[in-house]
Design a protein around this nucleic acid. Structure first.
Lengths: 203, 203
DNA sequence: AGGTTTTTACATACAAAACTGTATGGTTGG
DNA sequence: CCAACCATACAGTTTTGTATGTAAAAACCT
């Protein structure tokens, strides 16, 4: 095989990742062989083993290629304006987080992570999900604490409970939507649910 | 091999299911071979292929061995007393549903279904999850509709939104808990969240 | 009830396919 | 000229499904 330029090599690497994303999404991680990925990209297993150590390495590269919505959600929460209500900050941040899911690539990779892969070799997707969930919770907890200290939350509703309620609701919504993305719009239904939940939490 | 009595044969079938449950839980469905299951039960693959058609058949038998919590939850909702408030009926039904999760076997199988298996051959766990979710939603929706018609819900909160909020919250809680069952008690935290959510939804 | 036959309930053996990792080869860019 | 970039070839393991063997339970017969 003729040697490619550095740009071409990078392109084949991207092509392999794209192929892996599609085949993983279609058939699940465990049921897809490296040869299927290579052939789907118009290449051979030699290219896969050159760019990646093995299947786990390829999978990790695929996951790290996108920023996770939970991370971006935390980011949005922390970067929110300080002159608006904490509850409004959380509301806007959640909406912004939902917008990130519009990209089909992120949707596919999240779906792979949540529904289409088991743990294998040294990769544990459950730990990843747990990490994202904790980040989401911690990010929101601080802001809910502000809201609580300002007396904005309804009586009997602690900051911890509010954060856990919001996180569980979002998590459940994510799972439902990723199971059947065509069933409803995550922005519409998710936005409605977030607004309602925030509204119910207000004093 | 000496032939066993019918009772003994049924016992070995149960032993195979128990072994499958443990090994699936430990290593995931895709990564466990039928020989690993057989050896874990002190048997050989011959026993597996006698009692089950293949891995998918074994998996289905394992899942069907337990009633799902969503099903029982719906059941509890429908069987609830009619002389109490609809919201109270939902609250009690959710608590009852949580109690079903105390059994380690149900917990393990649910964990396998949600976190430890991809689709394979003609088995699609995603469809199962979807089915349970829809049953849960439909069961609660009817009762929330009663609550709405009786003017019990807070203004601006429709029955559909209330049901979806409750379902997503429960679903997210389930996923979080099944990821790390030892992190917290599902009855305590789940009960607290359910009570709070119902409380917030009341007028 | 006792003897015979037929199934049952597995264990063992075998063939076939699939997948992995590596080793090797061949161009060509830098 | 060397190493990057990938294709091809090869050896090895793992898993699956089936085929065969077999001792005893169960059914049948008288």
């Amino acid at each position: 095989m003729a040697r490619k330029t550095k740009a071409e090599a990078a392109a084949t690497r991207e092509a392999l990742l794209n192929a892996a994303e599609e085949v993983f999404f279609e058939k699940g991680v465990a049921r897809t062989s490296l040869e299927q990925i290579a052939r789907h990209a118009g290449l051979t297993r030699g290219a896969v083993y050159w760019h990646f150590k093995n299947k786990a390495d390829l999978f990790m590269a695929l996951v790290e290629r996108v920023r996770m919505p939970f991370e971006s959600l935390v980011e949005e929460v922390n970067n929110a304006d300080t002159d608006i209500s904490p509850l409004e900050a959380i509301r806007l941040a959640c909406h912004a987080g939902l917008n990130h899911l519009e990209q089909p690539s992120r949707q596919r990779i999240l779906s792979i992570l949540l529904h289409r892969c088991e743990f294998f070799s040294d990769i544990n997707p459950i730990e990843m999900q747990e990490k994202f969930g904790e980040e989401c919770l911690d990010g929101m907890l601080a802001v809910f604490q502000l809201a609580h200290d300002q007396g904005l939350l309804r009586e009997g509703l602690s900051a911890e409970l509010a954060a856990r309620l919001m996180q569980s609701t979002l998590g459940g919504l994510f799972h439902d939507w990723l199971r059947t993305p065509e069933a409803f719009s995550i922005r519409e239904r998710g936005g409605e649910m977030i607004d309602t939940l925030i509204y119910l939490m207000q004093r």
